[in-house]
Design a protein around this nucleic acid. Structure first.
Lengths: 207, 207
DNA sequence: CCGGCTTTGTGACAACGCGTTGCAAACTAC
DNA sequence: GTAGTTTGCAACGCGTTGTCACAAAGCCGG
């Protein structure tokens, strides 16, 4: 079942639920109602229940949803269970912030390598990962199997790194720089733009 | 005209266009077609033209859209022209990365203050802004008028900062921590969750 | 044990958003 | 002037989403 892919909307909402569930779990909660999820996501409670009930009966009437099991179920639905290797480029402030945070680890992403070109950084440790020289990208990609490349590098070199990632067979690039990346159509680029998200939030506040 | 607020979808897409336009501008481009915007955003070209033509005739047939003027027009439509003061909390790796980046400045956000509690950081400079002690939040809020609070603090103290921001009258909170924040219903919290966005991208790649 | 309350699961229907197609008008380039 | 490009716009149909309604299932107080 569920042979055909989810709609954009459903996948987006499921991801959103996952975010809130993970946060709620960190806060020590074990159970949550569709009403509560609605308050944090802005999605209609009926919509939430319908999204979930389409794949099985995960909740308990009168109680709500068990957070642990719902997280597991959603990750199954999204087929993103397990661990995925990511490679981080740039060991500056942003790179260090990402590497020392648990945001990626919490969702099954393992930082398998950190690359930089600055001799002052190569060889140093960020968390428990040693920063490697960018030239080693090819070897790491061949041995570890990088699923996602995360770019925390200056915009001027972002395109070059993207090209190298494409050459290494990486299909998903997460771009923290402000460069507009050109990649083949089978490669997905996601650019983080907090300022734009902020403008979006601001619009609704000003209305 | 445009008396009633934009739909969620339109506002989201306009924000997205803004992101790409800003990036394209940085790359030195001066003009862009709906086709090109489509390639970077995934939005249908017809949809883009319809979104834009609903507010005026911004493009030139046979040429495309002038990037500078389109950025200005979209910001007018979103009513977010001008400069908005934001306050940054936490001068660690993430805080420094944000402060030294131009992402916020590019979209009209001015970091009017950076706060921390660590005596080793208070008084130091990040970019050209001096880190102030968190206790001064009240004064800054009263004099500068903070529109957005950006939380780059550990999850354990995020709720406390959020409470103080609410008390100071701030209505928009941008949360980089992994805490689930409880705020009054008239306050908007936007939590950054790159890992979840990554899962979303991963789903479509795996399908 | 029972009756009230909460919350899920589900159906039906209306409304809206969105993709699609098609085409005229305006602009560039040669 | 002619060919090619790109916007602006109308029309249509499908799919998603919001809304209302309600039964079933679990919890809690008495």
């Amino acid at each position: 079942m569920a042979a055909d892919r989810l709609t954009l909307g459903v996948a987006a909402r499921l991801s959103r639920y996952l975010q809130v569930l993970t946060q709620a779990k960190k806060m020590g909660k074990t159970s949550i109602s569709s009403q509560a999820i609605s308050e944090y996501t802005g999605v209609n409670p009926t919509q939430i229940r319908r999204d979930l009930s389409g794949f099985g009966k995960f909740g308990k009437r009168g109680v709500g949803y068990d957070i642990d099991s719902l997280i597991e179920q959603i990750r199954k639905i999204l087929r993103t269970s397990g661990t995925h290797n990511i490679a981080l480029f740039g060991a500056g402030n942003l790179g260090q912030a990402i590497a020392s945070s648990s945001v990626f680890a919490d969702h099954g992403f393992r930082i398998s390598a950190i690359f930089d070109v600055d001799p002052g950084r190569v060889g140093s440790k960020v968390g428990d990962i040693t920063v490697r020289h960018y030239d080693e990208l090819g070897e790491v990609a061949a041995s570890d199997g990088i699923m996602v490349g995360v770019l925390a590098v200056p915009g001027e070199v972002a395109q070059q790194v993207a090209d190298d990632l494409v050459a290494a067979g990486v299909k998903i690039i997460f771009n923290y720089s402000d460069a507009l990346l050109s990649v083949p159509s089978d490669v997905t680029v996601h650019t983080s733009s907090p300022a734009v998200e902020l403008l979006y939030a601001l619009y609704f506040y000003l209305s």
